[in-house]
Design a binder for these strands. Sequence first.
DNA 1: ATTACAACTGATAATAAATAGCGACAATCT
DNA 2: AGATTGTCGCTATTTATTATCAGTTGTAAT
Lengths: 161, 161
Amino acid sequence: MDEIRNDDNKKETRNTRQKKLIIDCLNKYGSNHMTVEEIFNLIQQQDTQISIATVYRNLRLLEEQGLVNKVFVADDATAYYEIKDAASSHSHHHLICRQCGAIIDFEDDLLEALEKMITLTKGFQVQDHHVAFYGICRDCTEKNKAAQDAVEKPAPDEARQ
Amino acid sequence: MDEIRNDDNKKETRNTRQKKLIIDCLNKYGSNHMTVEEIFNLIQQQDTQISIATVYRNLRLLEEQGLVNKVFVADDATAYYEIKDAASSHSHHHLICRQCGAIIDFEDDLLEALEKMITLTKGFQVQDHHVAFYGICRDCTEKNKAAQDAVEKPAPDEARQ
DNA sequence: ATTACAACTGATAATAAATAGCGACAATCT
DNA sequence: AGATTGTCGCTATTTATTATCAGTTGTAAT
């Protein structure tokens, strides 16, 4: 009656200085969804000895423990990391600006309905989702509008739209 | 008055045998969302001379022309390709089975409402989206259930679910 | 505190996915 | 036909990530 408990995932995990630095870093800037390079560069300022392999290793461990999220949001093949806190683990999405590259969080629960529909019609048990919306962010939209106005009306003429 | 038309994207594109093979391949199997390796291996059966660099090159060109989609659905950093036909270009999502790796399409328009909400609350102009749901597909769910039943009731007893 | 052991470290080599460079070839236009 | 230039196959290179390995360190038991 005991041989069923074979999935011994009691992988001991240690609390090293390097791991703490990574978590601190993600807690500070993690909402910006950082690449490994970005995390590495920031931590180097506090620990000039740290190796990028250690950053990769710890991020993988932290992801396996469910403490951080690894997402592929951009159109390239680079992984982005963020802290996964209980509150936002299941229902926040990413808005990615194609012009300036900004990654903006968006909280929402509308997808819950969609997931139920998927289970009903496809028999697919949804555990998680990655959702990314691509487009132009508010700042860039405004910048573009200003730039276009300048082209269409080079003389500062006042009035009209 | 002519120097504005600087964005000459009149990149001439030629209709080569290799490009046709790639499109044919995606049309046949593309709904399975193929990797470059998979496409390359299949085409090699018809054209033993083709180079994988050509497959990469053409897929990039076809994506720039808007004829194919490049998506990062899995948890790894590999790109998957599919034909982008007008009908399904804006509103189909991917269900990815974490057990067998199957990638299943799901048609839906519920996200349109979500996009409108994003524009309203964030001022973000949505152009496109990638949506991926992770979980266990119907087949794997059934297999798992059968396997668990076998464990819980090793004797072939008949009856009961 | 000392010991013991496995997880962890930094440095580097190895792998995988994708791109760049290059001479040869071929599709298209005149 | 001849010129132009996109494309081909090949190979080298880049980029992101993982594996290897000898030495180090966190942690728990002595």
